[in-house]
Design a protein around this nucleic acid. Structure first.
Lengths: 144, 144
DNA sequence: ATCATAATATTGATATATCAAATAATGACT
DNA sequence: AGTCATTATTTGATATATCAATATTATGAT
């Protein structure tokens, strides 16, 4: 194959890998835990790990747009996974707390997420993963 | 790092790479060619390469849902990039032809796409790309 | 030829991505 | 204190992802 075709099919493989992984992950989570999306879980997890983050900082951490975060948080509040109240010193902001339900859900889901990652990477050596990591990091750097 | 953290950050890098690449690609295309999305270009290119494909087959080729293809084609027709007429033998289907505008656009955009891929993969050796390809293909296989 | 089933495409509902514009509050400067 | 730029978030518009339901046509078995 020429370089151009190799490059083209690389991005094809990249799209395909992320899509099949996301589909598998969403399917297993939905089956076991019902109506929650991977993205919503990501946001919850980020807020649990670093409770002091602003919405904007959450957006950066999970690679999402501010607008998307607003809407995801909205849904999480409506679903009873987040409690939203005014921020004590900055009235543009909000104080967001995970509800007990959210804490429980995250704890239950966690092993499934680990398992999914393991399934996806099964049969790949550590060295191959290291090289792939390097490639992916370089792509972000090149495109950023 | 433990295996679990390594795995987690691998998927983080994967998400980040595809997002930054897509953003870069969309930005450069929009700047140079205006209101067309990467996904719309993908569909047009697939139809140009294999004009006899059904919409469902297009969906498979570009990794999209049937519903998404319906809507993307709808947009492309409205934008004047596709001409849609009844299929001669199967009345469930349609015959879709690229307009001259679409042909011209694809031809103009092509070098930019090649360039974007080259930019994204700059500084990565062929061997690293080969290994990354292998990893990505294995992930799809594992999740499929 | 009929009828059940399969295939093709569309539509509806909800979630997310993206950009631009709008709100609202804060902080800095005079 | 009052003006102004900046910051934090929201909203609107459009595109895409996904799943379920629907409509229409084609096909195969009888």
């Amino acid at each position: 194959m020429g370089v151009e075709k190799l490059n083209a099919s690389f991005f094809y493989l990249l799209e395909r890998a992320i899509k099949t992984y996301r589909q598998m992950a969403q399917r297993t989570i939905s089956e076991e835990y019902g109506a929650i999306t991977i993205d919503q879980l990501l946001v919850l997890q980020a807020m649990k790990d670093q409770p002091e983050l602003t919405q904007q900082q959450i957006a950066v951490v999970v690679f999402k747009d501010y607008a998307s975060i607003t809407r995801i948080i909205d849904l999480l509040v409506r679903k009873g996974f987040l409690h939203r109240s005014g921020h004590p010193t900055d009235r543009r902001r909000f104080e967001l707390r995970l509800t007990q339900e959210a804490e429980d859900l995250l704890q239950q889901v966690h092993p499934r997420i680990l398992k999914n990652r393991k399934i996806a990477l099964d049969g790949i050596t550590e060295e191959e993963i290291l090289i792939a990591r390097k490639v992916l990091a370089k792509i972000s750097e090149n495109c950023g």
